[in-house]
Amino acid sequence: MPQSPTAHDPNDIQEFNLDAVAGILQDEKLDYRIDEHDGEKVIRTGFINAAISFILLDGSLTMEAMWRGAPSTDAAAQVLAATNEWNLTQFAPTIRFFELNEGTLAINALRHVVVSAGMSHNQVGSYVMSSIESAVQCFEWLEQQFPDLVTWKDEHHDH
């Protein structure tokens, strides 16, 4: 009698492939798309206040999230104080800001994990979902710090 293939144990360490991130997003029923940036595959998803990307670079999986709020460069001192407070008091993600274009700043969140030794399905899932959750929490905190920059409304928040 032929044996059926055995399912992989979700805790087994396997060589990391960015498709694992897409699989987690699909399992969680989150919309995503796959793009290419500078010759590298990028998985993008997002929420009302954030654009989130996952990319594999130099043996690390990086989550980068861009906040939708756009402070003016005149608010750089307040943005610096807020990013410093977040980074000093929170474990993840690390946030930073930079000039997006003349007169406008961008605030983004970063988180990395080394994947060169491989990851299990459960490790990938934990990293992806905790990265998304921490970015969303960070950006909700930024909305409290800069309420005048919130120009969007989440119609699903009350559900």
Rank of each mutant, 00 (worst) to 15 (best):
F98H: 08
L30V: 08
F47D: 05
S53D: 14
N87T: 11
S60K: 15
N101W: 09
Q90M: 13
E64W: 05
L57W: 06
M66T: 13
A106N: 06
I95D: 00
Q90G: 00
L25P: 02
Y32F: 15
Q26S: 12
A82L: 07
L61Y: 01
I55F: 06
R33P: 01
T94G: 02
G39V: 10
L56I: 08
D35T: 09
D74T: 13
N87F: 10
A50L: 15
F54C: 06
L56T: 11
Q90E: 12
R33H: 11
M66L: 14
I95T: 02
Q78K: 12
D31W: 13
V79W: 02
E28T: 03
A75C: 06
V42I: 15
G46D: 03
E40T: 09
L100P: 00
L56D: 12
E28H: 09
A51E: 10
R96N: 10
T45K: 04
T94M: 08
Q26C: 08
V42H: 02
A50N: 12
I34K: 13
W67A: 03
A81E: 15
I52G: 00
A92N: 04
L61K: 02
I95A: 00
G39M: 08
W86I: 11
F54T: 05
L100F: 03
S72A: 08
T104M: 07
L57Q: 12
A76W: 12
A76H: 11
I55R: 08
P93Y: 05
K29E: 09
L25G: 00
G39P: 06
D38I: 04
P71W: 02
L88F: 14
A65M: 05
M66W: 10
F91L: 15
H37Y: 14
N101D: 13
I55W: 05
R33C: 05
A70Q: 10
I95W: 01
P93Q: 04
G23H: 03
F54D: 00
A77Q: 14
N87H: 10
M63R: 03
L100G: 02
G59A: 09
H37L: 15
T62F: 07
D58V: 04
I107R: 00
A92F: 10
S53H: 09
F98I: 05
Q90L: 06
I52Q: 00
R33F: 10
L88C: 07
T89Q: 09
Q90N: 13
T94C: 05
G23A: 07
